[in-house]
Amino acid sequence: MTAITPLIRHYGDNAVLVEWDTAGFNATVSDQVHALAAQLRKTPIFTEVMPGYDSLVVSFDAEDLTLDEVTQQVKTALQADSDICVASESRLVEIPVSYGGAAGPDLAALAERIGKTPQEVIALHSDREYRVCMMGFIPGFAFLSEVDPVLQHPRHATPRAVVPAGSVGIANWQTGIYGLDSPGGWQIIGRTDLDMFDAKRDAPFLVEAGDRIRFVPQ
């Protein structure tokens, strides 16, 4: 696939958003996002370099840099040849999941709306390998690559006040794992007992961007 040229937009007075126009998940775009992040991190003048699925936000101190300067730096970084390989030598992490019931309160309703049985939803969700495209939202939250098109479902219109740590959810074509108890609007279909984030562990994060994940129904 050929590289897509992203849009660069102002995000308030101290950040710039780089956004690729793609419908659904696009592995080429995901590679471009992480290549740009790596390029921008070479100069430590930005406050945050935050890669997303098909977007990247770079924030800065507006005392030191202007929106125009940062826009120019992003353009230069996009042109720079950088070949980081996200997918080829990544780890595979298996995540045991209890689907449905109290662990997955939205499984039954989601299955009914898409005309499947809960068992079929579980089979479809656990039948493929996902890539960790971004970490974020809260510590340890893993945003994964796309689910089977049949499983795609919008978020709740009003987020839940508390979604328990380890919950596995669906939001449109995305699937992901909540790292901590947190408010959230995803359709929750299951939960893992693994701690996605533990500050006291030597490696606080169980997975990182670039890893591959497979869900194992319990």
Binding site: G12, G52, Y53, V57, F137, A171, N172, S182
Partner: peptide, 29 residues
């Protein structure tokens, strides 16, 4: 699609009641 979020941003969910992100705000939204 979930995308990075910064403190100081006013998020506008479909229910029409906006949420102002503060110091401990989620990193994406």
């Amino acid at each position: 699609t979930s995308s990075p979020l910064l403190p100081g941003t006013l998020q506008c969910p479909p229910d029409g009641q906006p949420i102002l992100a503060l110091a401990d705000a989620h990193c994406t939204g």
